[in-house]
Design a protein around this nucleic acid. Structure first.
Lengths: 120, 120
DNA sequence: CTGTATCCGCGGGGATACTG
DNA sequence: CAGTATCCCCGCGGATACAG
């Protein structure tokens, strides 16, 4: 309860109040990329998820795009990639703790999207 | 409780189970565009929101980009645009019922992003 | 004030071929 | 199986100028 003049007692938000409310770079930017949100949720639903399974979850994805997305999400600390050097090779993707938090927050979004536009 | 062979009793999800869980087009695509998520939440926080206020909430946006985003979101039925033909003209943006639902689901995401990456 | 119109560069993403 | 490498196109998005 300070008497800071910059923050009026009004409960009506102004532009200044939400100025810090708009992260544009970083994770938000990553999530804007194609399939990013869905990949997080798909991995969360299938854990552990293998590359081919993830690929199959999307009807049409080019391997390069999916590969890039997986790398980015792993790099961002949202996915954990574990490779087993067997023959044939086997890779398992899981959510990190951070990724799980994100997934929990993302799932309601996908639920809403589905309920609103069932045709995809 | 049918005996459908395609759906095993396993509680482990497979690719087939999440196949319908990955909407790619429509709203998700729109939300991938720059500032889209933030615009929804900013309008939700400021209602009613005027163009200049929204613009000010983002440090740097080109008018063309913001204008396009507002049009798209309005077209998608997420924003309601009300124009008053005064001089100077005044436009007020609000969330539609759908938009409010989306905003409610989006806000935890922005909260999480901020808490994870405070530097923006 | 609230945009639209135009031009244009950059990079995201698809297709394809190839590798450990 | 699980990708990477390469090429290339398209469309997003910025800058700028202009309009009602």
């Amino acid at each position: 309860m300070t008497d800071t003049p910059e923050r009026p007692t009004s409960d009506q938000l102004t532009a200044a109040d939400v100025q810090c409310y708009c992260p544009v770079g970083g994770v938000i930017d990553l999530l804007g990329r194609k399939y990013a949100i869905q990949v997080v949720c798909v991995v969360g639903a299938m854990q552990p998820a293998r590359y081919t399974e993830i690929e199959a979850a999307f009807g049409e994805v080019s391997s390069s795009t999916l590969s890039t997305r997986l790398s980015e999400l792993t790099e961002a600390g949202l996915l954990d990639r574990e490779q087993r050097n067997t023959i044939p090779p086997e890779v398992q993707y899981r959510l990190t703790t951070d990724g799980a938090e994100l997934c929990a927050v993302l799932e309601p979004l996908l639920q809403w999207v589905e309920s609103r536009d069932p045709s995809g």
